[in-house]
Simulated assay, not measured.
Amino acid sequence: MATLLHIDTSFNGDDSHSRAVTAAFREAWETEHPEGTVIYRDLAADPIPHLDAAAYYADSAAPAFALRGRLIEEAERADVILLGAPMYNYTIPSTLKAWLDHVFLVGRTSITENPSLAGKRAVVVTSRGGSYREGTPQYGKDYVENYLRLALGDVFGLDVSFIVPELTLAPHVPAMAGLVPLFESSRAESLATAESLAKELAVQSAA
């Protein structure tokens, strides 16, 4: 039975652009996998604690390791990992960093020849208020995608795809009013990409 691990991190609730796109992905994936399993974590509503020394150095049988063990096992069970990762102050939400810190485990998920998550597909929805594309004034200041390519791809060995709804502040900032059509185009494209990619990955996970 196919399993999707879906993690949201935006604190904007129903107004969140990343949540809208992850919801579109999940809906399309569930349509293709009506008998599938979804493991859902809302790290804004129910954040996990930052990793401390007790959990970091604990043996896998120790009580202090219990949360790390659950989070790692959820990722290992998943065929696809779906992450909502809006840009906050040029980087990922601290709640997502806490999740990653728990899942980084030397000899199991990282720093080993065969990471336990290697080969799985991951889809990251990283929304941002402006644009950080080449040629824009903010180019080079995106520390979301570069970091997650390293953490998820290079360390965990995941096959990572990014969906980037951008210019989300355009409808709310008068100085960005002229960019509203580009925002609307980006949002529509992101929703369509989420649906098509979910169907593609659903077929792969069923094969």
Rank of each mutant, 00 (worst) to 15 (best):
R108N: 10
S161W: 00
T109A: 02
L96M: 13
A177Q: 12
S127W: 03
D154N: 14
Q138I: 10
K120R: 15
P171N: 12
D154G: 00
L105A: 12
V144M: 06
G140V: 07
P93F: 01
A118S: 14
L100C: 05
L167I: 13
V180A: 00
V103L: 10
T168L: 12
S131D: 13
F162E: 06
A118E: 12
R149G: 01
A151F: 07
S116R: 14
Y147P: 02
M176N: 04
S127F: 04
I92L: 13
L152N: 02
L167Y: 07
V160R: 01
V106A: 15
K97V: 08
G153R: 12
P174T: 03
L182D: 14
V125W: 01
V144L: 11
T95G: 01
V164T: 13
F162G: 10
Y132F: 15
T126H: 09
G135A: 10
E113Q: 13
E166K: 13
D142V: 11
V164F: 00
K120E: 02
T136D: 10
L117A: 11
R133A: 15
V160Y: 01
T168H: 06
G130C: 08
A98C: 13
E166C: 06
Y143G: 02
T126N: 15
D101L: 09
N114M: 01
V103N: 05
T112V: 15
L96V: 09
D142A: 03
D142T: 11
W99P: 02
G140E: 12
V144T: 13
R149C: 03
L152V: 08
F156K: 01
V164K: 04
